[in-house]
Design a protein around this nucleic acid. Structure first.
Lengths: 342, 342
DNA sequence: TTGTAAGCGTTATCAA
DNA sequence: TTGATAACGCTTACAA
């Protein structure tokens, strides 16, 4: 509405009679000015309604305080909640976030990374599984991956193995006749594959009858629904009089399964036990609150930024320590018992 | 891994024998160079492995191609999906997004806006209802609001009035004895208040018996659940033998209500009809697919960027047109009939 | 079609 | 404790 031109250090300098340098110091090392002069500059700042311009600062100092985020999408609760928690670290670490949703297309994500680099981002957090960590590492910028393949980059992951152990253990306690783990076809390099190993190890250790159903459950809700419906038919045919303990890949799928059972029986039948993964909102909001292996998303988000910020700060030092080996932080899951298990 | 120092236009200029200006022109107006020289520069670029640095460009040109987004949170589907769709406009408009989740605290959001301004963002999209549009307008940057008070800023909103009309119309068709609209206490300035007016107008026009229940339903799932449970008790007491047609504030609340009924009756009872608002994923993933007044989120996101980009481009012109009156775009909702209405 | 030179708003270096 | 001056990497008149 009012002033067209922006107020700069030069204006403040002219107004106060100091040099631009002194004005700069007021911001970056105020103790090096006398209190009196600090006050003079402070007054000028308000008198002229100075607004800081970080672009000049970036150019001169090379520090953008930008962190790039590549996320597969935001319609899955897991990702949106993770992004939410990462954004919240702004209060702690002060880094701003440039966010791209890559939709798991490698070339698209590559383009986004180029773009991020052009803005001199200081680091990246990668949730998308698409681009191999070897390539990410070659960009020569601190990178932290979350729940993705992480051989050549630092990462924060849920202890998926323990999650599988917890799930199998819970089903064991509820006297199931047969334990079933339903999941997609997960590559061994993905942290999520640990869930399967944890589940199997417990079943083997305690000689529990179990079955692994590793099959693509589809990418849309309709596909999920149809395939899980088929699964239910299959299980009821194969184990008609048995109590079935099901550990399913995530809470969204658990919800689909639960709804199918409810529609069929009007309640959650005694012949089933069910446990999901993630502790997504849907697990609480389902027709019956669903048991789940909970990921500690706020903890994961904070650890990721802690590691990243450590690496970014290291780089800014006059004589940075040589880049260390990638750090891999494992966060334990929290078993959440609700109404779909005894 | 390799080069420490970055390659700049000066390096390209030295390598090719051209000036920095010519190199710059290669990027911004390539046709002004001979094809031969274009090739020379292109070769140098790859030979030296040049990576663009947009910070210099921003400083010199004043154009950041940044758009700031202030969003209340990401755990509500509506917001995360809207953000998803806004991010997707990058492919069309090329603007990058700096995202903050403000959690509806006015002073926090103000701080974020200051921060955004310091990075010379060219425009803002505001989803948060917290800061009055009069204040947003005073920042002197193009602003588009979405589903919030918008007197002094441009905006894109769902046609909430029509949504209320559609909901009441659908309930009317299914022969309900009493129509009930459940909503929070919405200020008249919020676009969402139109839903109430649309609902009431139809009821009045067709002389349908109706009741308005405008009460705070709480901010957490547990609060929602308790208050909606009380609501059900109330309704069953007040209208024991009547067919109740309920239009409720949003799909999350509709889901809570639906689950309560299912737990009570083992199915969706004939004495109810139910319609929500938004077309959130939960409306499809509920125990019974739920009817809803659908918001066209991708359309809204695109319109918002269209309006914003128009205003931003206008500002860049040599002689910008005087800032016009705020534009208010209304997007019709789409009635989605599923299994909770006849 | 190409070049010169002056910025853009800070910070960094060296001197005073 | 303060200041002059030179970057930072690019764009943009204006000239040639």
């Amino acid at each position: 509405m009012k002033s067209k031109k922006k107020v700069t250090f030069a204006d403040i300098a002219a107004y106060t009679g100091f040099s631009k340098t002194t004005v700069s110091r007021y911001f970056n090392d105020p103790d090096s000015l006398t209190l009196e002069n600090q006050q003079k500059i402070a007054d000028a700042l308000t008198a002229l309604d100075y607004k800081e311009n970080k672009v000049g600062r970036i150019l001169a100092s090379g520090r953008t305080e930008f962190v790039g985020i590549i996320i597969p999408n935001l319609y899955m609760h897991y990702y949106s909640e993770m992004l939410n928690q990462i954004l919240a670290t702004y209060e702690t670490y002060g880094y701003k976030f440039l966010v791209f949703a890559g939709n798991e297309k490698a070339d698209v994500e590559r383009k986004y990374i180029e773009e991020l680099l052009a803005y001199n981002i200081e680091g990246m957090i990668i949730l998308s599984p698409t681009i191999p960590s070897s390539e990410l590492a070659s960009y020569n910028v601190p990178v932290v991956g979350i729940e993705r393949e992480d051989q050549y980059i630092s990462s924060v992951n849920t202890d998926n193995y323990m999650g599988g152990v917890q799930a199998a253990g819970l089903l064991q306690k509820s006297d199931c006749d047969i334990l079933i783990h339903v999941n997609g076809k997960i590559p061994d390099t993905s942290p999520a594959s640990g869930r399967i190993r944890g589940f199997v190890d417990i079943c083997e250790e305690y000689h529990l009858p179990y079955e692994l159903i590793l099959t693509d459950l589809g990418n849309t809700f309709e596909e999920n629904r149809e395939r899980i419906s088929n699964l239910v038919d299959l299980l009821e045919e194969k184990y008609p009089d048995k109590k079935k303990g099901i550990f399913i890949a995530n809470d969204t799928h658990a919800n689909v399964l639960l709804n199918l059972l409810f529609q069929k029986y009007g309640r959650f039948p005694d012949s089933y036990q069910l446990i999901g993964f993630d502790n997504s909102p849907i697990s609480r909001e389902a027709v019956i609150p669903t048991s789940t292996v909970g990921q500690q998303i706020p903890v994961i988000a904070n650890e990721a930024m802690k590691i990243l910020s450590g690496q970014m700060e290291e780089r800014k030092k006059r004589r940075p320590a040589p880049p260390k080996e990638p750090v891999h932080k494992i966060i334990p899951p929290i078993l959440i018992r609700r109404e779909t298990t005894a």
